[in-house]
């Protein structure tokens, strides 16, 4: 099977979805690029991360649509088109900019189906580049998916590898509800085997990245690889772990997590967002309320600290959980 980067896998999913269904279009800032420019090279950019590369040249200006810098209008235009039957995929460059278009996502798009008594469909996908690792500081490094997970009416996807990214995005585009798709930007260049043909991965089905007996480790997005590295490093100490990547934080595969903890009796949850009201706390609460009697040790939560993301490379390295912190937490629940 060919290896592809996460960037290319997502790009391939977009190409395939647009070929298969002419109601699918992409919209966002510089998703084509060079519009109005004297070079005339419209479509040469394909998004600031290159994820929408080639779409303009293949599908033209009606289906690969550049916008002014107007995130609220981008999301609104996507959800409005979706309400009347299109399947838009909007790109909001950095997940942090969710702050700019929060109303359109949360109060509008995320509420239609319920508030309209189940009579509407809003099959819009909003893609974001999320997370840290670039010394991009407080306004270009946040995950934001943990916040969005708290809103009923929104589905939230966090792929951790190229294979999942492709299958999950194709599923998102088919889904009749609004889906927020968070691409950990530190993983764009990471490659794994990805089939050429189209395939989908259902929402709410966790992946077991490692299987073991002693500890259940749940990790999201960028943290999955780090958790795997920590687990592999501890193998020689005789510690074996389940590593669960939920892949979608909403819907959440509660059963996979609970069954694993019932077997291991120990839980470590890893996410790069700050600790309060986040995914680590959410999963710890799930296990505390539904599998308390199985627990042999207090749950360990590995997260960023309660502070904005710092700029300086040394500070950011201390901020985002690393392999050693995950290792230490696994050792802690085993102690």
């Amino acid at each position: 099977m060919p290896e592809k980067t996460m960037r290319d896998a997502i790009n391939e999913a977009l190409h395939q979805a647009m070929e298969a269904d002419d109601s699918v279009f992409v919209i966002g800032e510089d998703v084509a690029g060079c519009n109005g420019s004297p070079s005339g090279k419209v479509g040469e950019v394909g998004g600031v991360f290159g994820v929408t590369s080639g779409l303009y040249k293949k599908f033209g200006p009606d289906r690969c649509i550049d916008t002014p810098i107007s995130e609220s209008a981008i999301v609104g235009a996507a959800s409005g088109a979706a309400l009347v039957g299109m399947r838009p995929v909007a790109e909001i460059m950095f997940a942090d900019f969710v702050g700019v278009c929060m109303d359109q996502i949360v109060n509008q798009m995320g509420k239609f189906r319920y508030m309209f008594g189940g009579k509407s469909k809003c099959p819009a996908v909003i893609r974001f580049a999320s997370g840290g690792g670039f010394s991009a500081a407080g306004q270009h490094s946040q995950s934001m998916y943990q916040v969005m997970t708290s809103f009923p009416g929104l589905k939230v996807v966090i792929p951790s590898n190229a294979y999942d990214a492709k299958g999950l995005l194709l599923q998102a585009i088919q889904d009749d509800d609004p889906v927020l798709f968070f691409e950990p930007k530190a993983l764009y260049q990471e490659a794994c085997e990805v089939p050429d043909e189209a395939y989908t991965i259902p929402f709410g089905e966790a992946a077991f990245v490692r299987e073991g007996d002693d500890v259940t480790v749940v990790a999201f997005g960028q943290m999955v690889n780090r958790a795997a590295a920590a687990i592999d490093a501890l193998e020689s100490d005789g510690i074996s772990c389940d590593l669960i990547d939920p892949r979608t934080s909403s819907p959440l595969d509660e059963a996979a997590i609970l069954e694993s903890v019932e077997a291991t009796g120990r839980l470590v949850v890893v996410d790069e967002s700050p600790p309060r009201c986040g995914l680590t706390a959410d999963i710890a609460a799930l296990v505390a309320s539904k599998a308390f009697s199985a627990l042999k040790a207090p749950v360990q939560m590995v997260s960023a600290p309660h502070s904005p993301t710092p700029f300086s490379p040394e500070l950011e390295a201390a901020y985002i959980p690393d392999v050693n912190k995950v290792k230490a937490s696994i050792q802690e629940v085993m102690a």
Binding site: E29, D30, G33, C34, N35, G36, S37, P38, E44, V45, V48, D66, T67, P68, I69
Partner: peptide, 10 residues
């Protein structure tokens, strides 16, 4: 320009 987009478009 705003990033790669000309004012005449945006």
């Amino acid at each position: 320009y705003s990033e790669h987009t000309n004012i005449s478009y945006a």
